[in-house]
Simulated scan of single mutants.
Amino acid sequence: MKVRVLGCSGSIARDSRTTAFFIDDHILVDAGTGVGDLSVEEMAGITHVFLTHSHLDHIAALPLLLDTVGTQRCAPLQVFALAQTLKALREHIFNDVIWPDFTRIPRPEAPLVQLHPLGVGDVLAVSGITLEALPASHSVPAVGYALRGAGAWWVFSGDTEGGVAAFWQRVNALHAQAPGVGALVMETAFSNREQALARKSGHLTPAALAQELAQLSDPAGFPVYISHLKPSEGAAIMREVRQLEQGRGLQIIDLQSIELLQL
């Protein structure tokens, strides 16, 4: 399975694009501003989008993607997310005020996009990829995802403040079964000095990340990639995250340095 990192920043700035992962050239996990780096042909090849939650940095490119290639497609784009996330899309994006309602255009029976609810624990198979929705705790309803093709699992926490034991139970269970987990992507949006803001907004700091990673049954079993760094604090966050490696056997990598993962 090929995971192309289109964006993994917590906000925008030069060379900073918000969350979007391009899986095997036809699946998007989140649709942040990084989608804008795809060619028209690549956008037209996307068949499924899986959203972690409704915040703008994770959905910003979805309406624009439909505007770019919607009429070039031979079938509606299939978008999956929690029911609450889909409700937010209908009410606040595809509402004929912020953006045309492409769930009814050009015709209700043949729209450019179809929205499908999923729940935590749901498992779907899409063109050789197995996808499972994982629990997350954020300021709005949210999920993470685990995806696997022919190789190991790629696990993405989504935006989360942590404290979800079921997430780690599932990660450990996936890793216990061959071929295990090949990569874990964890958000860490704020430095430790912004702990109060991180808690209020439902994000992790390096100190909170340490508590989360302590629940791994095999800390050295696979690399942990850090995502969602705020551009103004990225260097400070990674300095604090690096301290977690000491004596723990962890392999921690700044996801912004990675363009492609092959699992």
Rank of each mutant, 00 (worst) to 15 (best):
A210H: 03
G182F: 07
T47P: 02
G221M: 02
I258C: 12
L255I: 12
I105V: 14
Q262W: 12
F190M: 03
P141S: 10
I226L: 07
K2L: 13
G34F: 05
A31M: 13
P141C: 09
F102Q: 05
S39A: 07
A110I: 09
V241H: 02
G162H: 01
E42C: 07
S16Y: 15
G70P: 04
S217M: 04
L174A: 07
G180V: 08
V97D: 06
S137R: 14
T205R: 00
Q262Y: 13
F21K: 01
G149S: 11
A183C: 03
A110W: 14
I237F: 00
L131C: 04
F22R: 00
G182N: 10
A110M: 12
D25A: 04
N95E: 07
I46Y: 01
L112Y: 12
Q84I: 01
L56A: 11
A166Y: 08
W168K: 00
D254R: 09
G32E: 11
I46L: 03
H175R: 07
E259F: 15
A150P: 12
L64N: 15
A13G: 14
S139C: 12
A125N: 11
E161H: 03
T205K: 01
L174H: 04
T160N: 01
G151C: 05
I98G: 08
A166L: 13
A13C: 12
R193G: 06
F222L: 02
R107P: 08
V35M: 06
F50S: 00
